[in-house]
Amino acid sequence: MATNHGSGRLVVGAHYGSRDWLGQRATAALIALFTAVVVVQLLLPGELGYYRWAGIFAPQWMKFLTFVVIIALALHAWIGVRDIWMDYIKPAGLRLALQVLSIVWLVGCAGWAVQVIWRL
């Protein structure tokens, strides 16, 4: 078991970041699946107005899936944006500030999106 704390903490090597790497792919697959579910329902025949659109998100299983996808999207976006800051922003203070700002941004957006599905 790799040490992930203290002076022996694993910060380099073949497995550093592989959990994030895998997490980003798992969440990506979920988001792609969700996209397919929505697109298939949009392609069904019939006029696309408010009732059909709202009807897509009305069943409990769809709220369940949408909720999971919102969390997955936030995690996916966090790993991606963290990579961007780690690649391009070298000063530690500025990077930390941007990372905190990113978390605030993503958590806030996720909360708002969750509120939309659960108040219907």
Partner: peptide, 10 residues
């Protein structure tokens, strides 16, 4: 495109 999507999330 990923960065753009995050920026326009709201």
């Amino acid at each position: 495109s990923g960065a753009l999507l995050i920026l326009l999330l709201p």
